[in-house]
Design a protein around this nucleic acid. Sequence first.
RNA 1: GGCGACUUAGCCAAGUGGUAAGGCGUGGGACUGCAACUCCCUGAUCGUCGGUUCAAAUCCGUCAGUCGCCUCCA
Length: 473
Amino acid sequence: MENKLSFYNTLTRKVEQFIPNEDGRVSMYTCGPTVYHYAHIGNLRSYIVEDLLEKTLRYLGYHVKRVMNITDVGHLSSDADTGEDKMLKGAKREHKTVLEIAKFYTDAFFKDCQKLNIKKPDVVEPATNCISEFIHMIEVLIEKGYAYESGGNIYFDTAKLEEYYVFSSQSEKELLVGVRDDVEADENKKNKSDFVLWFTKSKFEDQELKWESPWGVGYPGWHIECSCISMKHLGESMDIHCGGVDNIFPHHTNEIAQSEAYIGHKWCNYWFHVNHLNDKSGKMSKSNGEFLTVSLLEAKGYDPRAYRLFCLQSHYRKPLEFSYEALDNIAAAYDKLIKKVGMLKNEGEICQSDFDSYKAKFEAALCDDLNSAMAITVLYDMLKDELSDCTKYALAKSFDEVLSLDLTTAYATREADNGVDEEFESYILTKIEERKAAKKEKDFAKADAIRNELLEKGILLEDTREGVKWRKA
RNA sequence: GGCGACUUAGCCAAGUGGUAAGGCGUGGGACUGCAACUCCCUGAUCGUCGGUUCAAAUCCGUCAGUCGCCUCCA
């Protein structure tokens, strides 16, 4: 098939035409969440954009197989032996077991994804499911001379590689690892850039999850899981590996090191990275500033899909700054947009040439390094154009396969779900009738009084062209 | 200290050599008993200073500001 899509490949530092290994088929891997806490909306920006990439590929006609891991073990807050395990930290915080924590936050993650219309990947695999695969890969790495034992742990020997810093233009001499003050050196490492494949000696003895291994009872390092899980489901070559920009180093760098050392050839051709969501003070994180979750946005009255639109109207490679002012902006835009689409009458015959022409424009925007902002402009242009309602409706529905904003259904769903009980609803309807009568009598004082009375009870009346409508204020 | 990114109207944001998309908001208008909704109209010469070019937001350099990475992070 025709390969029209181009996007930025971190490996070559260029926007490149995407050509999969196998014509028409795409294997795609996403670094999933570490399930020790709720995801914040910054984490979710990556998953929204990766969802956009996956859906764009499908829209263009590719068959996509997408795999995501769930990190439920081995993710330390530092790669040295001193860091605390994130999962354990979460378990202590909530007085639960690590497995309970993992299950709870995995479920929470996918609930958030669902609210943001992020499709669940075809394969979702927790790290703890694949311990035997990890052990096998480490054994092979030791056998091939890429890994060594030191101080009870197994390390990857980065000095054995011709090129380790594959994503960086800096020379290795320039890149002084560990220059940051808060990084503690691990004395067991031969080289500063070496990383742990398997822990048996840990400074925290109460690690809950441990497994037998040829090197003693212990647990895997963080990086090994993505290499193993991707190969388990996608084989020894894959097309696209995704993640947030912060994964470029060390996580993805280490994945490439161990994977290509293991298989002995090029592993993944395209590396797709999403930039961060920031707030005024910088990168959003769980420990810095307000902990913004999907549920928090909902509690404040925002539709999660408005946040999706917020992400889509910016470019994935640009930092995006979050503010409530910006979110208010986009929430208003989203409400107007779904109303506009929701009012279209889906009747009559679609004009195929109009349909094809706008669909081509929409695809062209996405194929140009996933320019979703431009794709949304195509949507607005299309809605403003002199097309038949049903053609517009069909186009909106088609675009929504990628945008996933529930364009054609959200308005009707909101109208139907007014969130009040039957008794209150019949009361409202009675009042509306009373007001209608008052208006007919030109008794506007009474009509306004009724409207105000309902407003005090949290109900807003509007005289639209389609008749009187009411909603929660 | 090293490396990198970004800087476009009140806000978000597209645009990668030919004289600034789109959205939200604002203001004005139509409609409406009023309000809301809806519709129409409405705004910037692109951080600074230089350079290249017939032509630059777009290329090069400079300065400034913001942010990121350099073994926790999506």
